[in-house]
């Protein structure tokens, strides 16, 4: 099976006045295509740092990160932006919608940064509407984020992450701010997207959320402490 992403002896160190923080201290993980992984571990174990490197937002101090056959550490800032735009979809704990935009406009944001910045075509618009429908927000297109519940906002974020049809979906505690019922709805959405072949890497510290994934990777002090496969 081909790897969607691969980490080889990955380090991320922060050099502070008080000493060096080894947020990632030699991580080796391979994510095959179609994987659905939950990354778990206590606070400060390096989960977010790992996800940021995977998402091309951060560069490793050393080691290799191979994304779609390319070593990310060698990419320029513009190329990394391209990767974030085309290869990766992001879902954040705090939704991170743009407040002055409507639901539809928020879903369209990644389209603004496509290579060559083509204008938004009728088929683009149709895709956005389909995604809004997929996450069940067809009747809220003109709403602004503050007019939506947390669950609805997160669903907008999911739709937005999918608009450029990325191979990998990254989610950092996507249900952290949601009640368990809405969390389950989001997870159902993830299961469905994974069923369509999308690779999903998700950080969580909740067992019942992690249970939706195919496998669980446990982090501790910047290294992989263990890996398990359990179905809640």
């Amino acid at each position: 099976m081909k790897a969607a992403a691969q980490l080889v002896d990955l380090h991320k160190h922060y050099y502070l006045a008080g000493g060096t923080v080894r947020a990632l201290n030699g991580v080796d993980i391979t994510f095959p295509e179609g994987d659905f992984v939950a990354i778990m571990g206590s606070s400060g174990s390096g989960k977010s740092t790992l996800l940021n490197v995977l998402g091309g937002l951060d560069r490793p101090t050393s080691g290799q990160y191979i994304l779609a056959g390319q070593d990310v550490s060698e990419l320029s800032d513009d190329e990394l932006s391209y990767a974030r735009n085309q290869l990766i979809g992001f879902v954040f704990q705090s939704y991170n919608l743009i407040t002055q935009y409507t639901v539809l406009e928020n879903i369209e944001v990644p389209l603004l940064y496509r290579p060559g910045a083509p204008s938004i075509s009728a088929s683009d618009r149709e895709r956005c509407l389909e995604l809004a429908d997929l996450v069940g927000l067809s009747d809220r297109l003109d709403h602004r984020p503050f007019q939506l519940s947390g669950g609805q906002q997160q669903r907008v974020a999911v739709a937005r992450s999918l608009v450029n049809n990325p191979a990998i979906l990254l989610a950092d505690e996507p249900t952290g701010n949601l009640d368990s019922k809405t969390a389950d709805e989001i997870m159902d959405l993830f299961v469905r997207l994974n069923g369509e072949g999308r690779t999903i890497i998700m950080v969580t510290h909740e067992n019942d959320i992690a249970a939706y994934a195919h496998r669980q990777i446990h982090m501790k002090d910047g290294v992989v402490a263990g890996e398990g496969v359990f179905k809640g």
């Binding site: 937002l57 932006s81 992001f90 954040f92 743009i98 990644p110 940064y113 937005r160």
Partner: peptide, 16 residues
């Protein structure tokens, strides 16, 4: 700042 971070995460280049 937050909005800028969001846009960057979604693929905006520095130039954008």
């Amino acid at each position: 700042t937050r909005e800028i971070g969001i846009r960057r995460a979604l693929g905006a280049r520095q130039r954008d």
